[in-house]
Simulated scan of single mutants.
Amino acid sequence: MFPKRIPSMRRRRPRPPIAGIALPGGLIVLILLSIQQALALPFWGTAPQTSPTPTGTPTPERVLSSTPTLPPPTATPLPTRIPTPTGTPTPTPYPFFQEPLPPSDGTPRALRVPILMYHYISDPPPGADRLRLDLSVRPSQFEAHLQYLRQAGYETVSLSDLIFHLTQGKPLPPRPVVLTFDDGYRDAYEEAFPLLQRYGFRGTFFVLTGRADEGDPRYLSWEQIRRMSEAGMEIQLHGREHIPLNGRDEAFLFYHIIGGKQSIEAHTGRPVRFFAYPSSVYDETLIRFLEGYRFWGAVTTAYGADERLENRFLWPRIRIRGTDGVPQLAGKLQEFTGP
């Protein structure tokens, strides 16, 4: 007989106590909670009720309401784009005299005062061309002119004096005359200026400021201009350069006219009120420009002696030529003033 089989005893694994299972699980939960709190992450899908406030100035808690209590946000305007200029910019105006025309008393007036126009007061150089000869009055010849004017009872006045007479009736001497000198050549200081002082006359000099700026020895320097102004001579504008100014835009005119005006006024401290058109070339735009910047008037090379308020930007003059002795000068004056 087979021996009786005794059933084998299976080895059972020991079961850990419940405390052994709970302790590691609790540690894991504690670790996860610590990580979640440090990183501000939701734990097992639950959203946090409050958000941690960053370090610094505390942010007040916002109370939600079904009805908004704050005003609607205002849109922040975008910065305005400044367009880039495409043409020649107008120079920034610096301070300069802008005197309004003296107010009129309402009485219409007209004058026939000779405005004489000189250029060179010097002997023409050897080989001078016809134009230079025509524009040159020798110093001895010019002194003879002044002697005649004094003997004939003429008294020099300024262009401003004519304006004050036309607007307000300011009295003028019985035989007024205006002596003008164009271009501002050096001989205006060396020859004309001392002769005018000797005979008690006053001259009006239309200068080119660009020549003085560059120190051109053929033209007046700023120091000479200042001395003449301090002695009672009138310094007015002929432009920066002797170039035609018709058909120009406002920026170009501002540079050549207002720039020259500023230069004279800065050196003399006296207002520039009148302009002499280079080569007597002008157009309506140029006249409107002068009037807009409160010039009182302008002179041309047109022959005549008709001065009215209405044509103050086109006043004519009497050209004195190199061939004009005293008889020629007397004849031209008597044409407008009588014997």
Rank of each mutant, 00 (worst) to 15 (best):
G292I: 00
P316S: 04
A298H: 00
Q168S: 15
G215L: 09
S104I: 09
P124W: 01
T50C: 05
T107E: 10
R15A: 15
R132T: 15
L172R: 07
A40R: 11
Y303P: 02
M1Q: 08
E61K: 13
R62Y: 07
P79L: 06
P72V: 06
A144H: 13
R202A: 13
G45E: 02
A128R: 11
P102M: 11
S280P: 02
P126T: 14
E223N: 12
P79S: 06
V157P: 04
F275P: 00
R227N: 10
R227Q: 14
P68Q: 08
L30Q: 05
A152N: 11
I6C: 10
Y189I: 05
P93A: 15
D123Q: 14
T74D: 06
G331R: 14
P7L: 08
M228W: 09
D134N: 12
S279K: 08
I257T: 10
R130M: 08
R130Q: 15
V29H: 06
P91N: 12
P58R: 12
S158F: 03
G20I: 07
S140R: 12
L309S: 02
F2A: 11
G322R: 00
T86Y: 10
M117G: 00
G259T: 04
A19S: 14
A75K: 07
F96G: 08
V63W: 10
S229W: 05
E230G: 12
Q328Y: 03
D129H: 06
T92N: 11
L149D: 07
F201N: 00
V326R: 04
Y189Q: 09
A144M: 02
N246V: 00
R226N: 14
S8G: 03
V178I: 14
G325V: 05
Q98E: 12
A302L: 12
G247N: 07
I82A: 07
S65Y: 03
P42R: 00
L286Y: 00
E335Q: 13
L135S: 04
Y120V: 01
Q334H: 11
L111E: 13
G247H: 09
T268H: 05
T80P: 05
F181K: 05
H256S: 13
L286H: 00
W296D: 00
P171T: 09
T84Y: 03
Y94M: 15
P73S: 11
R109I: 03
F205K: 02
T76D: 05
